[in-house]
């Protein structure tokens, strides 16, 4: 008969956290930057089809790092949740806070339940406000913890170096080109020596207040990004 060894809960949680963190750091970083006109998401992603950044609702965007199948699953669930709430109530009743709560509880339950392996993902959920002071960005960790992001945030890969660079060079009230430039330069700080990330390898999207349509999410083309980097 096989003997079950005692593992302390602390050790169990630590092992699960280490496992999740290891999976997340394997990929490249994703940065989110608040600028004067809205929220900018920048990811290093050579694929044109498999997105790390997506639209959830009129004013809500989503960015993720980690295992594709897991965050894609969460993204689709988020779109369903948002569309269902907007249909049952009203479009204005769909909020990033509600979505972040749903994600946090789901990730937390999966993390602490013995059955499933923890999700190896981290997520940004951003909501565009009426003005820059009301923009909200939430960062969700693999264990379901939520943090409020102020100004900028980075997750995945070697995020410490990227975040340190942004901390030094980010200023409030940037224009779009300035925000793209600082975010893209920051993403290149993850190696020593520092590298330059090509526009073709980037996935860039914004939630922009200046967009006249109710759906504020917009993907920027390679040409847009190149033009911003040249300024």
């Amino acid at each position: 008969m096989s003997q079950q060894f005692y593992v302390s809960p602390e050790q169990l949680m630590k092992d699960r956290a280490d496992f999740a963190r290891k999976g997340i750091t394997r990929g490249r970083s994703v940065a989110v930057v608040e600028y004067a006109d809205g929220i900018l998401f920048v990811a290093e992603n050579p694929s044109r089809a498999l997105h790390k950044i997506s639209e959830i609702y009129d004013r809500i965007g989503f960015a993720a790092v980690g295992r594709y199948n897991e965050f894609e699953n969460l993204r689709i669930a988020g779109v369903r949740l948002a569309d269902m709430r907007g249909y049952a109530y009203d479009r204005r009743d769909v909020t990033a806070r509600g979505l972040a709560n749903a994600y946090a509880q789901t990730l937390g339950t999966i993390f602490s339940s013995g059955g499933e392996k923890p999700y190896e993902v981290e997520i940004f959920v951003g909501e565009l406000g009426e003005d820059a002071a009301h923009d909200q960005v939430y960062r969700l960790m693999y264990d379901g913890s939520v943090a409020d992001v102020q100004g900028f945030g980075v997750m995945g890969g070697q995020s410490e170096q990227v975040e340190a660079y942004l901390g030094e060079h980010y200023t409030t009230g940037l224009d779009l080109a300035g925000a793209i430039k600082v975010a893209v330069t920051a993403l290149g700080q993850d190696t020593d020596p520092v590298r330059t990330v090509e526009a073709a390898a980037l996935e860039v999207a914004t939630l922009s207040r200046s967009r006249p349509q109710p759906r504020k999410f917009k993907r920027l083309t390679g040409a847009d990004v190149e033009a911003a980097l040249r300024v």
């Binding site: 699953n73 988020g78 949740l81 569309d83 269902m84 049952a88 749903a102 994600y103 509880q105 789901t106």
Partner: peptide, 23 residues
């Protein structure tokens, strides 16, 4: 918590999803 059924892979149709979860 994400509602029951949202995380299942299914069709891309909202109407189908609505009919199955909130008829």
């Amino acid at each position: 918590m994400l509602p029951e059924g949202t995380r299942l892979t299914g069709s891309s149709s909202f109407a189908d999803y609505l009919a199955s979860t909130a008829p």
